[in-house]
Design a protein around this nucleic acid. Structure first.
Lengths: 322, 322
DNA sequence: GTGAAAGCGCTAACAG
DNA sequence: CTGTTAGCGCTTTCAC
């Protein structure tokens, strides 16, 4: 049909027929069928963003960045929520695969996401990894600086006078959790500070054990005066546990963490954090992805590292003994 | 192809060929093309959820409910963020129209969304309205109880001893904002309490004016001792404004609001609220939508009203004069 | 400038 | 039980 030509503004059409077609389209409420078009063009102009937790402000802010960037570049964005659940992630990957999206932006659940990513790679769907790396999988990525952020937080506590600092980490199956733990150990060593047995906690998947772990920590002969949590929700759970044990933050124990918490929708932000530029994660991720799709990217994988910023707030103070 | 039959598990196939096909599929990493299938089946098994603010916990919680319900019913869910922006909403509606989703779940930006909804109706795409009504548009809907919630909050303040209560409302182009204002006026009247000129504030679209409006409120000869905000972010902005004016909450002024705030990711929830069952909004919305799609619903529109729950916390207390 | 023919990957309906 | 034909709504490609 000539109709197609007017819709796509392509080829030569006389203004007369052009107007006539436009009029008829309006009259019959014509809406082009994107699926039929994608089928023949072999491109959908559809991108997919998979985040691991829709309720975590870090990821919603990231999603807004991705959305804005996608719109700017003329792509639509499908949002998906993996829920930190490998099975849901798998399901979602299968969905986007059969939906024939042009590219995928995702924060993988963890190292075990490797299998899912391989599927994407095998179907030649371009993807960009956000925030977390997956060993064994080359790809474009946007990462935070876990080493630097952890160092900032640790230094902050040391500067306040803390010497006994414990670490509450996430699963070792997640790259950021590993890096933050390693950096914490390094930084403590650089300050000549000891890391007693029991100061290094690895939270289990659903954080079920945290209350017990915190209780054990405080029952030590030399309990810590500060706690560094590897992410925002971990810190939150820790503080709840501390409160239920009658401990006050920061009076009895300082708590600091990675990732912003509360700043957007709270009267009075409480937590001292190493904040990451979450919105930019989304924007840059989409740009990198679209570059790759449109083959404007170099052959080799690209990697961008976004630095964190320390926000000192009320959850950290000098140790009680000072 | 016989292939189609094994994929869809339909018709009679010998186990031998069945296995052979499965093997070949695996070998060549076959992934069915959902678009091609939708094209012929005239259904996509795709639902779309449009929320007005991705960063508002009310809507993210709602989205999780919708997601879970959609998965249960065998549908995929595309998330969209309208950003309280009529233009983005329009864009999104066009997108889902051309993507040929089977149904749409949405919280309209406001009364002006009517035009967008009419487009959906004209294309015979079933949709369910969440949280906000749109005058002139019949449809299935899941609503909160704005009257009851406002009454609860007002009664709470009156019981604490407040007599001078101001109201910070949202745009009158949004049904919930209108209802909450009306219910506030009614309830105050029922208590025999006066509503001086200036006690009723309508926040503008982007809340730019709030600081000035709050300043004016406090400069009145008889300033209020309590403030009822029509939603969570409005309350937040108000409290920020109050703080910058050196006022303390609840010591100098009590503040309460509609919608949950902070409870999920904060150490110590502060705000007294009339919380709505946001997750259930999503679940019930999807169920209602799927019923409609599968024509299990009655011809007439259905409407479900979900009651709010009062959570008394720290942002409200007796008036200073007591 | 405009129309006709072919085909994207799939499934419905019918043959064999 | 399995293969064939046709067509979903669109965009090529190539005639006119």
């Amino acid at each position: 049909m000539t109709v197609s030509r007017v819709i796509n503004n392509t080829g030569r059409i006389s203004e007369a027929t052009r107007q006539r077609i436009l009029a008829i389209m309006k009259e019959m409420n014509y809406v082009p069928n994107a699926m039929a078009r994608s089928l023949v063009k072999q491109e959908s102009r559809l991108l997919s963003l998979l985040i691991p937790d829709l309720t975590n402000p870090f990821y919603t802010s990231l999603a807004r960045g991705a959305e804005d960037a996608a719109r700017d570049l003329g792509y639509r964005l499908l949002l998906g929520n993996g829920d930190e659940d490998l099975a849901k992630e798998k399901e979602y990957i299968e969905t986007v695969l059969s939906a024939r999206v042009d590219g995928v932006l995702l924060t993988p659940t963890g190292d075990q996401s490797l299998a899912h990513l391989k599927k994407l790679a095998k179907q030649r769907i371009p993807f960009v990894l956000l925030d977390r790396e997956v060993p064994g999988m080359g790809s474009d990525q946007i990462l935070g600086d876990s080493r630097e952020g952890t160092r900032m937080l640790t230094d902050h506590l040391v500067t306040l006078g803390h010497r006994r600092i414990a670490f509450l980490g996430g699963s070792r199956l997640v790259s950021t959790a590993r890096l933050r733990l390693a950096s914490f150990e390094e930084t403590m060593a650089a300050h000549g500070l000891a890391l007693p047995e029991g100061y290094l906690i690895e939270a289990d998947y659903r954080m079920k054990e945290i209350d017990r772990q915190i209780t054990a920590l405080l029952a030590m002969p030399e309990p810590p005066t500060a706690l560094l949590a590897a992410n925002n929700f971990l810190a939150l759970r820790a503080i709840r546990a501390l409160r239920s044990l009658g401990k006050r933050v920061p009076d009895d124990l300082s708590v600091v963490c990675f990732d912003e918490l509360e700043a957007g929708f709270v009267v009075d932000p409480f937590m001292t954090v190493a904040a990451q530029p979450s919105y930019d994660f989304g924007v840059m991720g989409i740009r990198m992805l679209v570059d790759r799709i449109q083959q404007k990217a170099p052959e080799s994988w690209r990697k961008v590292v976004l630095p964190p910023v320390l926000h000192v707030r009320k959850s950290s103070g000098p140790p009680a003994s000072l």
